[in-house]
Amino acid sequence: MRTRHKARAAGSRRVSPPLPSGQRVPAPAGRQDDAFDLWLRASLKRAYDDVAAEPVPPHLLRLIEPDRG
């Protein structure tokens, strides 16, 4: 995981709890994504979109079916 900020004195910055899966931390007003974030997002999308779009095999669906409802 990439760290954007250098270490700071204890208590100088509040740390938020992790967000539930799938949610993004909102960017501060007026801040645009930096080049690394754009590159990383595009690279991950290119690498995993095809796999994520594949149907779930029936044997795996049978395993998770009881938890779905």
Rank of each mutant, 00 (worst) to 15 (best):
R46A: 11
E54T: 00
L38I: 00
A35Q: 11
G69P: 08
L38V: 13
R14Y: 07
L19R: 14
A47W: 03
D37S: 14
L38A: 15
P20Y: 01
V25H: 13
P28G: 07
D37P: 05
T3A: 13
D33P: 04
V56R: 02
W39H: 15
H59Q: 14
R8P: 01
V56A: 07
A10W: 10
Y48R: 08
K45I: 07
A27C: 06
R2G: 02
F36Q: 01
Y48V: 06
V51G: 08
K6L: 09
E54R: 03
A52W: 07
R4C: 06
F36S: 08
Y48P: 04
L60F: 05
A9P: 02
W39G: 11
A35V: 09
F36G: 07
P55G: 02
K6P: 02
P20H: 00
L40Q: 14
S43N: 14
R41K: 10
A10F: 10
S16T: 07
R4A: 15
P17Y: 03
R24T: 10
M1V: 06
R68G: 01
A7N: 12
P26Q: 09
R4H: 10
Y48F: 09
G11N: 06
M1N: 07
F36C: 03
P66I: 03
A27S: 13
M1A: 13
D33H: 12
V25T: 15
P55C: 02
T3P: 06
R24H: 12
R24C: 05
V51D: 08
A47C: 13
R68I: 12
L19P: 10
D67V: 11
R68H: 12
E54S: 06
D50E: 03
R4F: 11
G69N: 15
V56E: 08
P58D: 04
L63C: 11
T3D: 12
L60M: 05
P58G: 07
A7G: 04
A10V: 05
G22Y: 01
R24N: 12
A9C: 04
A10M: 01
L61S: 01
L19A: 09
D33I: 06
R24F: 02
Q23I: 04
P17R: 06
E54V: 08
R13S: 04
R24D: 12
A29Y: 04
L60E: 04
H59Y: 05
S21Q: 09
A35W: 01
A7K: 09
A10L: 06
W39N: 11
A47V: 08
A47T: 00
V51L: 13
A47H: 02
W39M: 14
D37G: 15
W39F: 15
